[in-house]
């Protein structure tokens, strides 16, 4: 296809991506270099019969004028990146010098907002992914043995948690796990503790969120594994049966090796998707004990009258760096595939 034809075919799609995915990243970066203007204070002398006092007041007129002149705020360089809410270098240095032991230092560090969020995000990613892969594989194996007429409805039932949006999915589970819901009261009954609730401690909330993550992501792993199972070659399996291999041995030595590439694909997609976890935290109303990087950005932008563009931009940039780390293996894989294709 000549360059010119290609250009016109691709132009609309490329323009949309450039304007609304490429530019926002740059705009986010610019925002992160600026900080909201400080309020201009003025001293007002107030006199009453008992004497004169000077008061400091916010000069609203001057502040709003400044805001109009510099809507993005003043230039702050990388200041936002290292402040207390982000990388917090000063606080870490201080903690390093003052803390008596290593665990003390880690304690202080993980109480800083950014590191707290990073810890949750990574914990969520790495706790959800392995069970998802294992469960997805088992479900795929089981459903593959069903008779054809049963397969359709069963697959439909199994993929439901994946197709609802995470907010609705987490709400639906939350209403059951809530202390007043069916699961919550059953758990209280089982442990004979009327005050036990999954919201009572931060560990339990984290576990709940992780269980939700597994529930939501397993169908995706299942669908991909199920599709891949249809491509497993039959000849080696038949040969193995003739040689007397048990079902377990066949799965272990023929099916699983065949599915390795698919499994890495699932793991990478799962890690990438869970790195942006946001809706479950809102659905489970777990903002108090579990914050993710995405949630930090969301929180900065939520209030309509005072959005912290600088702070949100800085967190976004740091999140993108995190995504880049996770993305590298995917890119290498795609690159290799493309090489072999040509």
């Amino acid at each position: 296809m000549p360059h010119k034809t290609f250009f016109w075919f691709f132009f609309p799609s490329g323009l949309a991506m450039l304007l609304f995915i490429g530019l926002p990243i740059i705009s986010s970066f610019f925002q992160s270099l600026h900080i909201e203007p400080e309020q201009i204070l003025m001293e007002v002398e107030k006199c009453d019969p008992f004497g004169c006092k000077t008061e400091t007041k916010v000069d609203i007129e001057a502040t709003s004028k400044l805001q109009e002149e510099q809507p993005l705020g003043r230039f702050n360089g990388l200041g936002t990146y290292v402040d207390r809410n982000h990388l917090a270098f000063d606080q870490i240095k201080e903690a390093w010098n003052n803390s008596s032991s290593m665990s003390d230092f880690i304690d202080i560090m993980l109480n800083l907002p950014f590191y707290k969020a990073l810890l949750f995000t990574l914990t969520f990613c790495f706790a959800v992914t392995p069970p998802v892969v294992v469960l997805g594989f088992i479900v795929a194996l089981s459903i593959n043995t069903l008779t054809k007429s049963l397969k359709g409805p069963t697959i439909f039932g199994v993929i439901l948690p994946m197709i609802v949006t995470p907010l609705i999915g987490s709400l639906v589970l939350f209403w059951m796990i809530d202390a007043k819901g069916i699961l919550g009261s059953t758990i209280q009954y089982l442990f004979d503790d009327p005050n036990l609730s999954l919201k009572s401690s931060s560990q339990l909330t984290w576990i709940t969120l992780i269980i939700y993550g597994i529930w939501h992501n397993t169908p995706f792993a299942f669908v991909v594994f199920y599709a891949a199972l249809q491509t497993v070659p039959q000849d080696p399996i038949e040969a193995a049966i003739i040689d007397g291999a048990s079902r377990y041995e066949r799965v272990r030595h023929i099916v699983i090796p065949h599915l390795y590439p698919v499994a890495t694909f699932i793991i990478l997609i799962c890690l990438m998707d869970n790195f942006r976890v946001l809706e479950p935290i809102i659905g489970f109303a777990a903002e108090g004990v579990a914050q993710s990087l995405s949630w930090m950005i969301y929180n900065d932008l939520r209030s309509e009258n005072k959005m912290l563009f600088g702070s949100a931009g800085a967190t976004s940039m740091l999140t993108i760096i995190g995504v880049a780390f996770l993305l590298t293996p995917v890119l290498i894989r795609t690159w290799r595939e493309f090489r072999t294709e040509r």
């Binding site: 986010s28 809507p71 942006r276 995917v330 795609t334």
Partner: peptide
């Protein structure tokens, strides 16, 4: 592929202003 991996919230933070 890189664009696909961008968390939507980071894009939104770039749109708002």
């Amino acid at each position: 592929l890189i664009f696909r991996a961008m968390p939507h919230i980071t894009l939104v933070s770039g749109y708002l202003f």
